[in-house]
Design a protein around this nucleic acid. Structure first.
Lengths: 223, 223, 223, 223
DNA sequence: CATGAATGAGGGTTCATTCAT
DNA sequence: CATGAATGAACCCTCATTCAT
């Protein structure tokens, strides 16, 4: 390919990266609605107007960011997966990846959720192009979820999981715990010792509260 | 007390209730920043200006709402707690209460979190009065958490819980699962069969993934 | 009707009148695109935001103004029409009305025309409501034109007009002359003695250049 | 002259022509304010920045275009004039020239007028250079007008015109009719059969409405 | 107390113009 | 000379908040 074209593409990519990184910082801190393009531009080292060279509007920046980051997370998780090692070990690696990834920017994903809620209401506001972009967000979420479903399935095949709850539901619980914990961090403002936190979480996931199997208990007797 | 004063107080309370109910609807749908006072006023059956008779500004409405609802949740949970019955039964009752409470308005609590984040940054924006109000929010969260810690402690005393993870951490996981599940509902837009959902959730909490105790596994061997 | 309602309506009408009058001044001076809402508001004695209490956007102000003024012109012309007196006398009255009306605000109607041109191109930009409003503009023009067609028809019936050009075409020429003359005033920046100007114009309309009927001339031989 | 200099000049002229042609198209469609330099550049086959190599700013492009086109019209009209043939024949040729010239770009001259109006107000905005350029516009208009005055004078000398209205006023009416008709085309969006349109227009100019000479009518009795 | 109307502050977006390559 | 990218200055519009009635 023409070296000039390559160089230009590289430069362009560098700049969109700068912008999206700035956007992550600002959106994470302020949420979608309170984030100011001026702040994003300033953090990225551009003028507000320059952003429009790379993105058509605020929504596109936001959606592009969400998609990029989810895609990145997906790829990072992919390298964490290794069906050779045992399930909990593998899960530990993934959790480290996830907590590292979301650790400082989980607020962004609260925004994603809120923004999505809004869009359900104001769907007519989204141009066709944005509708397409927007649809990619849940699609990325789903891809990540499937990754984990596959991990669980493999573990079950190796008898490492004995719960009779179905795979995708277990993946849901896994996701829920992760989100819930990060949410908690947000709320309390502290993050704790990630390594230790993960150890405990794994223990909980492995055995739950550790209730004794009780034939009289209608809830768990079916297990 | 002067009956007239009582009457006036009663009327005032009725109106603030109307306003906060409207606020819950609107904040839940739109989040804090996208919610318009005009919408809240319309839903409450007032004009926008009338809101200022009862609250000094938008933030106060939001905070008052969060505090009121968390307080309500706390009281509803209190009536669900009954240390006579077994732990999982009790938990089931609480989960029904929580899911019913948050089911349709969880977005509101995403907003609480976002709003809190914002406040960390713009603390100077909050008047002294708001700072006090604001501090009540995590305080209410904590109260609810303690309720559950006590439930867990009682269960542990009755040998219904054998995990060596400490009580408040378990309560965290419980909260995390609940929040995570509702978050999931938000994201996918569907709610499913709440009763069945709770049953499965209880099973998961009781035993986790059901991993076999494995002496060689460094993660769970300490359990 | 409730006096309060009447009072409120009256006040509202007064204010919309103030705004449209201000809009006429500003649009006439600057044209649609260069006119600033801030200027209109200032001239009307309001803040910019106040305009939005009465009109949804700039376009609506412009269209409302055009429609109001054309309607006014129509009514003023209606009172000028009197089929009892002879045609040229009647025309004289109408011309006085028209020149007085457009004298200082013809630029506005250049804007109308330009704006209309734009709208042909950007039709998709006009909301449904604006499409309806917009359609009224040519409709008002047509109403005025028809007034003049009827005047001409009556004159022809009384043998005051002998040209074989059809009525609506003659009305077109009449309109063209009027517009053209005002356009000229705009261009040169002077207005001259309106009374005298009209006298001459009438003479011209009555007999044109006064070319001799020439059987050999292929152009006018058919007359 | 140095052939290289000549070549460069020729190339430069070609490019300015490309730009002004593009400008005519865009200004005609959008008017001065809504025309975007980007559109002009695109139509001309340049980048926006390139325009600044040939013109100092948007205003200069506009004024240069107006002057060039009026000059062109002047020269085209010059070749249409032939005092040997009779007046109406000659007028017919000129009208064909004019309608052809303005037919599709009359909106441009609405813009000229609007722009001029604006300039009356914002004269301070025009640099000295622009003031000079700007002055050329009415000057060109005047030149064209004089052409027609001379035509009329010649016709009068040959007794082809008997109206006692003075020559320049008749030229004004002629111009007014032409402008007014094109304005009408703009407004209605249709153009009709130009040839036939001109025939009728000539008839109207020759004899007007064809009012009977009426000694009692104070308006036309002086004729 | 309730409200319609008014407003100031602020944000997203556009675009003529400049500049580095 | 040509251009892609950058920018500052504006402008339209929104909305929480205030005020007169």
């Amino acid at each position: 390919m023409d070296p000039k074209v390559i160089r230009e593409q590289t430069v362009r990519e560098t700049k969109t990266t700068l912008i999206l990184d700035a956007a992550r910082k600002v959106f994470s801190e302020k949420g979608f609605f309170d984030a100011r393009l001026e702040d994003i531009a300033a953090v990225a080292g551009f003028s507000k107007a320059a952003l429009y060279t790379y993105y058509t509007d605020k929504e596109e920046i936001f959606l592009s960011l969400a998609i990029r980051d989810l895609e990145n997370l997906y790829h990072q998780l992919e390298t964490s997966v290794n069906s050779e090692i045992n399930f909990l070990k593998n899960l530990e690696k993934m959790l480290i990846t996830i907590f590292t990834f979301f650790g400082e920017n989980f607020a962004l994903f609260l925004s994603v959720s809120n923004f999505q809620t809004m869009c359900k209401i104001h769907k007519e506001k989204l141009s066709e192009k944005h509708k397409l972009l927007f649809a990619e967000v849940p699609s990325k979420f789903r891809k990540i979820m499937e990754q984990q479903v596959m991990l669980i399935r493999a573990a079950r095949a190796r008898k490492e999981i004995q719960s009779d709850i179905d795979d995708s539901q277990l993946a849901n619980y896994l996701g829920a715990l992760v989100r819930g914990i990060i949410f908690q961090w947000q709320l309390t403002g502290k993050m704790g010792d990630v390594k230790a936190e993960i150890r405990q979480l794994l223990k909980f996931m492995a055995h739950g509260l550790g209730c004794p199997a009780n034939a009289e208990d209608p809830i768990i007797s079916t297990m």
